[in-house]
Design a binder for these strands. Structure first.
Lengths: 245, 245
DNA sequence: ATTCCGAAAAATTTCGAAATCATGCGTTAC
DNA sequence: GTAACGCATGATTTCGAAATTTTTCGGAAT
């Protein structure tokens, strides 16, 4: 585990703990820290350069987001993935996003429309530029997330938005798993544009239909290409353990 | 603030931090720690007998549950309450619980039905016994929560259940606020029974209608009796500050 | 050969001091 | 008289060592 030692500095968040939580989140969402991987304090300490306490706080906030699993007094590990979990997240996302989108279309103002169009434009630009699978590109992931947030940002319910954020993060991890094994589906570009049109055009029924299809298709795609990589026992054999064979 | 000093001992949770989080949660849900109240470490340290770090961890988990607000580097306070927040929680609860109840009725087995009937029976027994407003009784609150959990426990979606738990906690605080100012509405007993009957009788449309009415009526009741107590600036004047006037 | 017990080892959890940051007040310059 | 600066104060945040808990490994008994 030769991650370079980076001095804990408030690059992103206001506090060191928030910064570490953010960086750890990136590692987990991109699956550089694979599902099931145990998170031992000594190793994290070496990678992130923070104390036990600060790391613990970062880990706890990720537990709250469902990205890390805490097992009583037996430490932390990256939350495992499974087909059941993927289906559960997908169904719940459909429920939440449909409702949020309905309300946003009913309540959204000019600024909301502009936010959607801007987010889509930025996403498209990034997709033109990058060559690597977008699932691994930090900027693409950020732009993709911001587009989906923009769609429902006018729904008027902080709770709905918070739930959406959490579910979107958990979905992201599955996208990353499958992105390793397949090229990016260019049809997504069209889907995003259609979603924008229907939403800004206040065609509630069409927009709702499109968002459900978009979410379910993405999940199906992941399941098809990556299912064989689920539910494996965590591959956390150290070099030492592998050598002992 | 003359809370008695109780030695931090693992009465409830497995770890001291989990135990303190549980006890703090109770204080907040019952509004013994009023909304908006600043949570200063020295005071908490005296009340709960734990170190800064442990308290911080407990606070952070309550922040994740939306019961405590963390303001950057300016410490913690009990999350404020407002009519907007009450309406937001209520709408989202309706969405979540209707879907969860639908799925539970479709998938529930014998054990599920028995769980509902048992939970209702326990709740009724407690209601017969107690004299104080139920909102302040720990056992009533626990039984009430377990009845609502039992109704949807068979929905098959861990995510839906987790969201419900979180929203139920946040609602609980509003119930506590209003419970201080009005007697318990005995109609609730009948509502719970009707809810049980429709659910166990697999009458999806009726059950869904009843749960929505139950949630909305409770919220309206709270709003009517307690609205004047919302949005007040936090009453955290110390004796010194009051004296200075 | 297998299971059970106990002690050593490894990991997590807790602690209080030290560092850091925000706030309010007094002083000074304009 | 007003605004701006700087210091003192009180609070939070971070640290690494110490205590507690879990896990592992070896040995003896069944």
């Amino acid at each position: 585990m030769n991650l370079k030692i980076v001095k804990a500095q408030k690059e992103f968040g206001k506090t060191v703990a928030a910064d570490i939580a953010y960086r750890l989140r990136e590692e987990i969402l991109s699956c550089r820290l694979p599902p099931g991987e145990p998170l031992r304090f000594e190793a994290l300490r070496a990678s992130f350069g923070a104390s036990f306490t600060t790391l613990r706080e970062a880990l706890m906030s990720l537990v709250a987001d469902g990205l890390v699993a805490a097992e009583g007094q037996r430490g932390f590990r990256v939350a495992p993935i499974s087909l059941d979990d993927l289906f559960d997240i997908t169904s719940t996302r459909v429920l939440i996003e449909i409702e949020a989108l309905r309300q946003a279309i009913a309540k959204g103002d000019d600024e909301w429309e502009i936010g959607i169009i801007s987010a889509l434009h930025r996403l498209n630009r990034i997709e033109e530029r990058i060559k690597t699978p977008p699932g691994e590109d930090l900027n693409w992931r950020r732009a993709h997330r911001e587009f989906h947030q923009a769609l429902i940002s006018a729904c008027g319910s902080p709770t709905l938005l918070a739930i959406h954020d959490s579910l979107f993060d958990r979905s992201e991890r599955y996208r990353s798993v499958s992105a390793t094994y397949r090229p990016y589906d260019r049809n997504k570009v069209g889907e995003h544009r259609a979603l924008m049109s229907a939403t800004v055009g206040r065609d509630t029924d069409l927009a709702v239909k499109l968002i459900e299809k978009h979410i379910r298709d993405t999940a199906d795609n992941v399941a098809t290409y990556a299912a064989e990589h689920f539910d494996r026992p965590a591959l956390h054999m150290t070099a030492k353990a592998a050598l002992a064979k």
